[in-house]
Write a protein that binds this DNA or RNA. Structure first.
Lengths: 211, 211
DNA sequence: CCAGAGATAGCACGATCGGTCGTTCTTAAC
DNA sequence: GTTAAGAACGACCGATCGTGCTATCTCTGG
C-alpha cells in the first residue's frame, strides 16, 4: 500500500520519436476499435495497420488492457475536442445543451469515428464485463450525463427551460442521441438524425414559446 | 443460379437427440453471446460450456457464421415469447404499445439475457461490419420498429393518440428503451428503467387527458 | 562526445482460434 | 434385422492470439 504511488500514469517517458509513434498508434487504434470493438482490436493487426512491429508496439503499452485504456483516453480527447469544447462558447446553458446535442449528431454524421460514437460501441461491448476497461467507460459516460444534467439545471434556474427533473431531461436527450447513432450506423438512416433533432428541439423548447 | 435452390434452411435433419443437443447448445450460445458478443463467442469455449466436444458442436453448424445466425434466431424466439406475444392480448393499439414497452423494460430488468437486450448488444457490435450477420440483426431491428410504428399509427387512427408522425413516436420510444437497457447494464442503474417508463407514459398519453 | 535510457525489431513461447478428418456409436426407416 | 445416415468424438491442421526475451539502433542529458 505504501509503495503504490499511483505510478500508472506517471510513467517515465521522454523521447519525442516514441511519443509520436505512440500517438500514431493510438490514432489507428481508435479508428479500428470503433469498428471492430475494443476486444477484437488485436495487437498484431494493429501493429500491421500502424506500420510497426508487434513487439515494438507492445513496448509502448505493456499489456493489452493498458492499450485499451490508452485507446479510451485517446477517444475521449477527440470527443472533448469535437463536442464539449465547441459548446463551451454557447451564449447560455440552454443553448449549450442544444449545441452539445447538435455537435454530437454532427460528429456521428461526419463519421469522426468510422463506426459511430466510440463510447456507444464500447459501452455495449464491455457493459456486462466487469473490469478496469468497463469502469473507465462507465466513468466517462457518467461525466457526459452530468454535463448535460448540470447545464439543464442551470437553464431551469434562469427560467430558460421548464422544470422537469434535470436528470430526466438529460436521460431523454442522451437516449435520442444514442438511438440516432445506432440507426445511422446500422441502417445508414440519415432521417434518424433528423428525428433526434426534432425531438430534442421540442424537449428543450424554452417555456416562453407557446404550446 | 439454377442449382441454387435455397437449401440454406431446408437442411436434412431428422434425429431427435440431435435436435435436443442443438437446442441446448443454442441456449448456452445466446446467454454467452449477450455478455461476450457474437464474435467473441468462440466455438471451443461454447463447446466446453455446453458440455460437448468442439467437433461435435461444429457438426451442427458448419461454420461460425451459421452458428451466429442460428444464435440470432434463438434469441429472436425468446424476444418474441417474452415481449411480442404477451402484448398481443392488449385491449387496443395504444395499450399494445404500452405493453410492448413495459414488457421490454421488464425483460431487461429480469435479465432474460444476462448482458441486457441481446439485439442492443448485437446491433452495436456488428453495426459497422457488413455481412450476413449484420443484415440479420438489421432486419429484426427494422421489424421491431415497424411493429411499434404500426400500432402507434393504428392508435392514432382511432383517436387514442395524438397525431405526431408515427415513425417519430416509434423512434422516441425505442430510444428510451435502449437507453434504459444500456444504463441498467453499465451502471446497474434501476432508476433508468423508471425514467424510461415515465417518458414513454407521457409520450403515449391519450389526447383526452388534460395537458 | 559519451553513456545510458528509450525505441524498435526479431524470434519464440504456449494458448486458443476456426475448421477438417476419420472413426465409432446410435437412431430410424425399410 | 439390416443398413444408411445422423450424432458425437479425439486428434490434428495452420493461423493468430497476447506476451515475453534479447539484441540492436537512436536520441538526449550531462
Amino acid at each position: 500500500m505504501a509503495k503504490n504511488l499511483a505510478e500508472d500514469a506517471a510513467e517515465r517517458r521522454t523521447r519525442s520519436d516514441g511519443d509520436r509513434t505512440r500517438r500514431s498508434i493510438l490514432d489507428t487504434a481508435v479508428r479500428l476499435a470503433t469498428v471492430e470493438g475494443l476486444e477484437r482490436l488485436s495487437i498484431g493487426r494493429l501493429a500491421e495497420e500502424a506500420g510497426v512491429s508487434k513487439s515494438g508496439l507492445f513496448a509502448h503499452f505493456r499489456s493489452k488492457e493498458k492499450l485499451q485504456l490508452a485507446t479510451i483516453e485517446a477517444a475521449r480527447e477527440i470527443f472533448v475536442r469535437e463536442i464539449i469544447m465547441p459548446a463551451e462558447a454557447a451564449s447560455g446553458p440552454r443553448e449549450r445543451v442544444e449545441q452539445l446535442c447538435e455537435r454530437f449528431l454532427s460528429y456521428v454524421e461526419r463519421l469522426v469515428f468510422p463506426g459511430g460514437c466510440f463510447f456507444a460501441v464500447a459501452a455495449a461491448e464491455v457493459g456486462a464485463r466487469p473490469g478496469p476497461v468497463r469502469e473507465r467507460i462507465a466513468k466517462y459516460q457518467r461525466q457526459w450525463m452530468q454535463l448535460l444534467e448540470h447545464n439543464i439545471a442551470e437553464a431551469q434556474a434562469i427560467g430558460a427551460l421548464d422544470d422537469a427533473p434535470a436528470s430526466q431531461v438529460a436521460f431523454e436527450c442522451n437516449a435520442l442521441l444514442i438511438a440516432a447513432n445506432t440507426a445511422f450506423i446500422l441502417h445508414g438512416d440519415r432521417t434518424a438524425l433528423e428525428r433526434a433533432r426534432r425531438a430534442i428541439q421540442v424537449r428543450l423548447r424554452p417555456p416562453s414559446e407557446l404550446r
